[in-house]
Simulated assay, not measured.
Amino acid sequence: MPDIHNEKSHRRRAFVADTTALILFFTMTGVINERFIAGMGWDQVLHARILGAALMVPVARPYGIWRDYVMQHAQPTNRLSQLFWDSVALVSLQVPIYVAIIAVSGASGHGLWRGVLGATTMMLVLGRPYGAFLNGVRRLFGLPSGGAQPMSLRT
């Protein structure tokens, strides 16, 4: 018979770990992209980061599960494979959300396109560093790293 208390505790820790990792990592990288690549004003950057943080809370755990699923395709001993699949996971789920965030926050025209291209480029480059950061945060919360077998909503 499964221990309901441990299952709930694990699910709660997985939610907090994935959310903490996403907010910390992408608040910093978002500021860099919005201010210095998209050319948004500091007031727009602040608005985008507040909106982004609010959206990251419900998105972080589903993204963690998505990433774990995608990372099953990566070869555990092949860094290039891990880099590729981490980048695919990040770009495929986060870029569309990010585009909506900066558009609602005031980016338009060329600034919007520069922001989209900047975010896509950053997420391609940051896919693996974020994946490693996420795994590190998960370890701090006593959770297994993702990728080999997804941490589902049930485990």
Score class of each variant (00 low, 15 high):
residue 73 H to C: 10
residue 1 M to H: 13
residue 4 I to Y: 09
residue 149 Q to F: 13
residue 48 A to T: 02
residue 1 M to Q: 11
residue 152 S to E: 01
residue 119 A to T: 12
residue 26 F to A: 04
residue 52 G to V: 00
residue 65 I to V: 14
residue 56 M to K: 02
residue 131 G to M: 11
residue 143 L to H: 02
residue 92 S to V: 06
residue 110 H to G: 12
residue 142 G to T: 03
residue 69 Y to R: 09
residue 83 L to N: 04
residue 114 R to W: 11
residue 50 I to H: 02
residue 16 V to G: 04
residue 115 G to E: 05
residue 149 Q to N: 13
residue 33 N to D: 07
residue 54 A to G: 15
residue 91 V to F: 12
residue 28 M to V: 15
residue 99 V to T: 10
residue 100 A to T: 03
residue 62 P to N: 01
residue 9 S to I: 07
residue 55 L to K: 02
residue 146 G to M: 02
residue 96 P to N: 05
residue 25 F to S: 15
residue 10 H to L: 13
residue 75 Q to N: 08
residue 22 L to I: 14
residue 121 T to A: 14
residue 105 S to T: 01
residue 39 G to H: 08
residue 60 A to D: 13
residue 100 A to V: 11
residue 151 M to I: 07
residue 118 G to A: 09
residue 87 S to A: 10
residue 142 G to S: 12
residue 98 Y to S: 05
residue 101 I to Y: 01
residue 74 A to N: 06
residue 15 F to G: 00
residue 58 P to C: 03
residue 94 Q to W: 14
residue 118 G to Y: 06
residue 125 V to K: 03
residue 89 A to R: 00
residue 70 V to H: 00
residue 88 V to G: 02
residue 16 V to H: 10
residue 13 R to Q: 09
residue 11 R to W: 10
residue 128 R to H: 06
residue 35 R to G: 14
residue 89 A to I: 06
residue 23 I to M: 14
residue 52 G to D: 06
residue 17 A to F: 10
residue 21 A to G: 15
residue 86 D to N: 15
residue 55 L to F: 11
residue 149 Q to A: 15
residue 71 M to T: 01
residue 137 V to M: 07
residue 58 P to G: 04
residue 4 I to A: 13
residue 111 G to P: 08
residue 41 G to S: 15
residue 123 M to Q: 11
residue 139 R to M: 09
residue 141 F to H: 14
residue 11 R to M: 10
residue 54 A to W: 00
residue 111 G to E: 04
residue 130 Y to S: 07
residue 57 V to H: 03
residue 67 R to Y: 14
residue 65 I to M: 11
residue 147 G to W: 11
residue 51 L to N: 01
residue 126 L to V: 09
residue 132 A to K: 06
residue 126 L to G: 07
residue 129 P to H: 02
residue 102 I to T: 00
residue 86 D to F: 12
residue 124 L to P: 03
residue 151 M to R: 01
residue 126 L to E: 07
residue 50 I to R: 03
residue 9 S to V: 10
residue 96 P to E: 02
residue 19 T to S: 14
residue 155 T to K: 02
residue 42 W to A: 03
residue 147 G to Y: 09
residue 31 V to D: 08
residue 16 V to A: 11
residue 72 Q to K: 04
residue 155 T to A: 11
residue 132 A to C: 02
residue 68 D to G: 11
residue 78 N to P: 12
residue 31 V to F: 15
residue 153 L to W: 09
residue 18 D to Y: 05
residue 58 P to E: 04
residue 144 P to A: 12
residue 111 G to L: 01
residue 12 R to E: 10
residue 62 P to H: 00
residue 127 G to I: 12
residue 106 G to V: 08
residue 74 A to L: 03
residue 92 S to N: 03
